[in-house]
């Protein structure tokens, strides 16, 4: 009963924020009294931006949730584990080599690079965790991997032309504004596939909290499930990062908040709740970024960090209290 109420409230909040993002921020467009240029802004700018925020918020929160369960670490997430940076590096390579402007391959090359980068890092982290366990050491591995991929990315920047540098640095600050047309369709497809795939893996994942040995004895193919979940996470994180840049704190903060709001053992419920709350966080972040009062667009990473960062600190303090 309480769970249904939570769902209802989250859905209403999401709908409200979506409406705000579409018709109020940064300037009010009255849909009943809209002129042609208003419709143009709605269709070409605000709708893709809002949909992108919704999809990326869902994607990052889902992967954060999956990674936190898989690595049994509530501070895990696509950003801190270096998954976003892995995707970033591959995307940067594609941008600097100009592969994204090639005919045919161009459109899809960014997504493929992102997926490849994200999945490779995930498989690396997962093989490290088999050897060194699931504790804080895994987060340290992630941070160090981020630094190494970051170094390569800096190297690329120093090799790139002025135009490429501008593209790269704009992209790496994170933005929901650039995803339109075919790219948006690709993002929709990837996130929907990722969500459906993850949904069917939630039951075995929920049993895996008992540890691989027990889960195995209960009929869960733990290796197969983990591998599928890693690839699924790589898919959605990779595509989201490829189009919007690395977005901080969403993937780590949202699953923890969901855990507090939904005290449920049903991972399918938790997965959907992560999508809802993740969308809320990114759309809210985007609304704050786009507010007229700033006089300019604040990069989305700044707002998600300012919203999510303090909350993650709170989680960290709490985990030490225990």
């Amino acid at each position: 009963m309480k769970i249904n109420l939570n769902f209802l409230i989250l859905t209403l909040v999401l709908i409200t924020l979506t409406a705000v993002s579409l018709i109020i921020v940064p300037q009010i467009i009255n849909p009943f009294n809209a002129i042609e240029s208003d419709w143009f802004i709605l269709k070409m700018y605000r709708f893709p931006k809002t949909l992108t925020a919704l999809l990326v918020g869902s994607a990052l929160s889902m992967s954060g949730f999956i990674l936190q369960q898989l690595f049994r670490n509530q501070l895990a997430g696509p950003y801190i584990l270096g998954v976003s940076s892995g995707a970033s590096l591959m995307v940067a390579i594609v941008l600097v080599l100009g592969i994204n402007t090639w005919p045919l391959l161009g459109h899809i090359s960014l997504s493929l690079a992102g997926i490849l980068g994200a999945t490779l890092i995930l498989l690396l982290i997962s093989s490290l965790s088999l050897k060194y366990g699931y504790g804080s050491i895994i987060l340290l591995f992630g941070v160090i991997i981020s630094m190494i991929t970051g170094a390569f990315q800096s190297l690329l920047v120093s090799l790139a032309s002025a135009e490429e540098i501008k593209n790269l640095s704009l992209w790496s600050m994170g933005s929901f504004n650039q995803v339109i047309g075919t790219d948006l369709v690709l993002l929709v497809i990837a996130v929907v596939i990722g969500l459906a795939w993850a949904y069917f893996l939630m039951n075995p994942l929920s049993v895996m909290i008992l540890g691989d040995e027990v889960a195995n004895s209960m009929g869960v193919n733990t290796r197969k499930t983990s591998f599928q979940l890693l690839v699924c996470t790589g898919l959605i994180t990779g595509v989201a990062t490829a189009f919007c840049g690395p977005i901080a704190f969403v993937g780590i903060a949202v699953p923890n908040l969901v855990k507090i709001l939904f005290k449920s053992v049903q991972f399918k419920t938790l997965l959907i709740a992560n999508c809802l709350l993740g969308s809320i966080m990114t759309i809210l972040g985007d609304i704050i970024s786009s507010l007229d009062i700033w006089g300019f667009q604040i990069p989305i990473n700044v707002t998600t960090s300012l919203i999510g960062g303090p909350f993650v600190l709170y989680i960290l303090f709490n985990s030490f209290k225990k």
């Binding site: 909290i209 008992l210 540890g211 040995e213 209960m218 855990k259 053992v265």
Partner: peptide, 28 residues
């Protein structure tokens, strides 16, 4: 899993799982 069940010493302390939930997991 139809033939053999196991119990090891690994304790979990999740705050969102009840005793009943855990026993139900046995029916996975």
């Amino acid at each position: 899993a139809d033939y053999i069940a196991i119990v090891n010493n690994k304790r979990i302390e999740e705050s969102y799982i009840t005793v009943e939930d855990l026993v139900k997991m046995g029916r996975y």
